[in-house]
């Protein structure tokens, strides 16, 4: 081969290589997948990422499964049916949620939000690992009324899923572990951290109005012991004095069989309240005003009433009308519009 020919071949090779590189780079840019990113103002997550690291393929598979009605007995109900994104991943407008065949459950569906920081799941904390969480709604009679074996068989027989599992986990065989880990990957990335409050805390330019600032000061004084920043829950279980519910739900007691846990429920986060009414474990309050009225004047004496709600012999948290309105202004800064509209978390 003479020098000229060699030169042409080399140039061609170089051009081809560059083209290939460029295509790869472009593809990577188009589908950049951030994985799980801890917001700067959040603590370290509690989830065991070492055994399940979100990947693009795993997350996308998890998202598809989250919106997959085949998870229910008659293929009518998906996770997304009762955890609606525009409602902060809750069942907006329903005090207690209804599942398959319109059967009613006994509790208000909690949000799929910031679960990477949760140490327990469900209102009673009966589940200790996010990977084990989906088994409960799938098998519950009034939710999806299905069993895991059937779900795995339906997915295995589907034209798409074996290939999607292979992409995500390297095997076309759909196992309980990979099915559950994919769902976890989607749920872990349901992170809400872009409210006005977050922007203020991260000093990104936003500032509280005077009323919001007054509400924040009140919040820190009267609410933060349980609704601890920045997740607005300390993940503890409390009897907040709303009284025994219509269905006598014993709360965390059912999990621990400890009398001290009777009628206690997990402290919910205060993020995205604008989208997630009604409130409390049984959805008994439809407005935040009703919630504040409850805390300020209607706390009931039950055997395990939280000590924080009976200080100096006064039940509840005394609040004036002006204080309530300041608190509501502050709570309004915890709403994260981006989270409830993020197309990455929507059904595709």
């Amino acid at each position: 081969m003479d020098r000229k020919k060699t030169g042409i071949v080399l140039t061609l090779l170089l051009v081809m290589t560059l083209a290939a590189c460029r295509k790869e780079v472009m593809e990577q840019l188009a589908v950049a997948f951030p994985g799980f990113v801890k917001p700067a103002n959040f603590p370290e997550p509690a989830y065991h990422f070492s055994t399940n690291t979100p990947t693009r393929e795993g997350f996308e598979l998890g998202r598809r499964l989250f919106y997959e009605p085949r998870l229910s007995r008659n293929n009518t109900i998906s996770c997304g049916s009762c955890h609606i994104q525009s409602a902060g991943f809750t069942h907006h407008g329903h005090d207690i949620s209804h599942g398959i065949d319109d059967r009613l459950g006994k509790r208000n569906s909690p949000p799929i939000m910031n679960l990477a920081w949760n140490t327990t799941f469900m209102w009673d904390g009966g589940i200790f690992d996010l990977d084990l969480q989906p088994i409960a709604p799938i098998t519950a009679h009034e939710e999806m009324d299905e069993n895991m074996n059937n779900v795995l068989a339906k997915l295995q027989a589907h034209p798409d899923y074996p290939g999607l599992f292979e992409k995500a986990f390297g095997s076309r065989e759909i196992t309980s572990a990979n099915f559950l880990k994919a769902l976890s990957q989607f749920m872990l990335l349901c992170v809400s951290s872009n409210s006005k409050y977050d922007s203020v805390m991260r000093q990104e330019g936003a500032v509280f109005t005077e009323e919001e600032a007054a509400g924040y000061a009140l919040f820190k004084q009267k609410c933060a012991a349980c609704h601890t920043e920045p997740l607005f829950t300390n993940h503890s279980f409390r009897d907040n004095g709303i009284g025994i519910g219509f269905n006598k739900d014993s709360g965390r007691y059912a999990v621990t069989l400890n009398e001290a846990d009777l009628y206690t429920f997990k402290v919910p986060s205060l993020r995205n309240l604008k989208f997630t009414a009604p409130y409390m474990h049984d959805g008994r309050f439809y407005t935040l005003e009703a919630v504040l009225d409850q805390y300020s004047g209607q706390v009931k004496h039950t055997p395990n009433l939280d000590p924080l709600l009976q200080q100096n012999g006064i039940p509840g948290i005394p609040l004036t009308a002006a204080e309530k309105s300041a608190l509501l202004a502050f709570l309004n800064t915890l709403n994260d519009k981006q989270f409830v509209t993020d197309p990455l978390l929507s059904e595709q």
Partner: peptide, 28 residues
């Protein structure tokens, strides 16, 4: 009983149904 789900294979796979299953979903 508290191990990662990937270690729960064979008879420990929590995929049984409510009728004959040997796993509590609501209270891990």
């Amino acid at each position: 009983s508290t191990m990662d789900v990937s270690k729960r294979t064979g008879v420990l796979d929590p995929s049984g149904g409510m009728a004959d299953g040997m796993y509590w979903g609501w209270n891990s």
